[in-house]
Write a protein that binds this DNA or RNA. Structure first.
Lengths: 192, 192
DNA sequence: TGTACATCAGTGAACGCGCGTTCACTGATGTAC
DNA sequence: TGTACATCAGTGAACGCGCGTTCACTGATGTAC
């Protein structure tokens, strides 16, 4: 079959989006190519018309995930009253919604402990996607220079990602809420 | 063959120790039974004389890992000058050594983002191992009541685990050191 | 004390399954003439 | 305008591989008599 010119690019994006969600929701072992393609009503063979291998898919899926969560945080910050941007970001990141919906959330939180064990190509892609993400969010963080804001970003987001990991591992909902609430308070105080 | 009475228990422990190290060093997908048994110069068939399935092994391996890292932190705290116990714990946990040697380190840091996706049996085992760990370390943390110290523990260690995850994902050694150093400073200040 | 049998940690072939990747093929549409 | 051919996104069988788990078997030693 011959498809319209935009068709391939659309399919490519659909695969990346679906992979990004699965990657964040189920982890790096939770994205089998056949299952992914079936979800999109395609067959696994076609995958290799779009990506040379799975690592390339992961690289693009990571960037996509960071863009999505970045947009979410920027929106929260821009809608917050003047001077409360940081609080809005922290509250959004450590919300029960973000905790419960890992597949739509931050790839860093979803994969903190796995990234270091990924193949080099994936780690490199992660690092550059994170760098882009840092630039997008950095302007809402305290700090005189860009370098200082980047360090603040690292500390704040790595801490919050760990907390999300703990909250997601906690089975009791009340305990989970208490963890999130305590963390929101602590990080706001520590970074204001 | 008939073995001395203690023999089985010893083998069981050897399997748990090796699994614990692999689990922390390579993640939950990095402990194939055949490979694990081969490392101990045994064959995979014998595994099921010791564990009813892989989940049971993971449960025991998690407990073992928490005991090991707990002992490490308690030792650091007890050797610290009076009043500097918390600092010793933070410095040990966020040391370059702990960052570089994940297989001997904290199972929580090694698996933060994976635990929530494990089967129920593993998650339950994780939660009770973490509770035991909290009790072992809690006495060195600030807080009037045991409950308050437990909350402090959750915030401090989930944050530090996230930071370790970021540091381990960072390829540039200088950046990695800077992350660890910044975090040591920040958490000490936030929890003193 | 000697003999027959029971025990059971460990062995290794076999199972069914899911995985990433390859490849010859399909067929609707674009293009060359 | 009509026809022959090229294109190429998507198909689905097939590959080799590693996995968790099962199971009939081994054989040194303990135990019953």
């Amino acid at each position: 079959m011959r498809y319209p010119v935009e068709h391939k690019e659309q399919t490519h994006q659909r695969i990346v989006r679906a992979a990004s969600r699965r990657l964040r929701g189920r982890g790096s072992e939770g994205v089998p190519i056949a299952g992914l393609m079936r979800e999109l009503r395609l067959t696994h063979g076609g995958f290799y018309r779009h990506f040379s291998n799975k690592e390339q898919l992961y690289a693009e899926a990571l960037a996509d995930g960071f863009e999505e969560v970045g947009a979410m945080l920027v929106r929260a910050a821009e809608q917050a009253p003047k001077g409360h941007e940081l609080q809005a970001i922290i509250d959004t990141y450590l919300s029960e919604g973000h905790c419960g919906q890992a597949s739509d959330g931050c790839p860093f939180a979803a994969l903190v402990s796995e990234i270091g064990r990924q193949p080099r190509a994936v780690r490199t892609a992660f690092e550059s996607a994170l760098r882009a993400h840092t630039r997008r969010i950095g302007r809402f963080l305290p700090g005189a220079s860009e370098e200082e804001r980047e360090r603040t970003f690292s500390l704040l987001f790595s801490g919050m990602a760990g907390t999300l990991g703990l909250a997601r591992a906690t089975s009791d909902p009340a305990t989970r809420r208490r963890i999130l609430e305590g963390a929101r308070e602590m990080y706001l105080k520590a970074f204001s």
